[in-house]
């Protein structure tokens, strides 16, 4: 039996209630927005239910939406059912003051580093993670660089001393 978007929707809607989930079919992959505290239950259900069988975590990352009050940080899971070859995108929104999200590393061993990377760059606190430390940045860093409040340096600034950057002083 082929796994269709309708089956996924129906199964999840019956299990968790249609009012809890927001579906979006406009992008390339079927997307569902779930409540933050339900993420483990939904992931476990998608993993265990034989009719769904989303047992491969392709990717996990976060996105910062500073204007989305109360849910500034979005955590995005890309799941894959390798048998039926169907993908599913799972999203949840967490407030930036207390971005607590349950860790998926007990379901997917591979989520460990992906969550560490997400924590490193966005500060999402994965509750229950066995080793939530920075991974790519230095341990002493005290901010989360991929958040939108840290813009890259303005390329047109002129107050910099070029001599410090090996360009001589003649360009100023």
């Amino acid at each position: 039996m082929a796994l269709t978007n309708d089956t996924i929707k129906e199964q999840l809607n019956t299990k968790f209630g249609a009012d809890q989930l927001q579906w979006d079919e406009s992008s390339d992959i079927l997307t569902v927005v779930i409540p933050r505290e339900l993420n483990l239950k939904v992931l476990q259900f998608l993993f265990d239910e034989p009719a769904l069988g989303f047992r491969f975590l392709t990717d996990l990352c976060a996105v910062h939406y500073p204007d989305n009050a109360g849910g500034e940080l979005a955590v995005v899971y890309h799941l894959h059912n390798l048998v039926e070859n169907v993908r599913l995108r799972l999203k949840l929104f967490a407030p930036i003051e207390k971005p607590d999200v349950y860790t998926a590393s007990n379901i997917f061993a591979g989520a460990n580093w992906m969550e560490r990377e997400t924590y490193d760059f966005f500060g999402v606190n994965f509750v229950g993670h066995p080793n939530l430390r920075r991974i790519l940045n230095v341990d002493e860093m005290d901010y989360f660089p991929l958040r939108k409040e840290y813009p890259l340096e303005d390329q047109t600034r002129i107050d910099k001393d070029d001599e410090m950057f090996g360009r001589g002083g003649s360009y100023n």
Binding site: D28, D59, V76, H78, R89
Partner: peptide, 20 residues
């Protein structure tokens, strides 16, 4: 505007680009 995930088979496996 849009949101896409595209994957290719890279030398080491699924190389994905998630572009918003």
């Amino acid at each position: 505007k849009g949101e896409v995930y595209h994957a290719v088979e890279g030398g080491n496996g699924e190389l994905g680009y998630y572009l918003i």
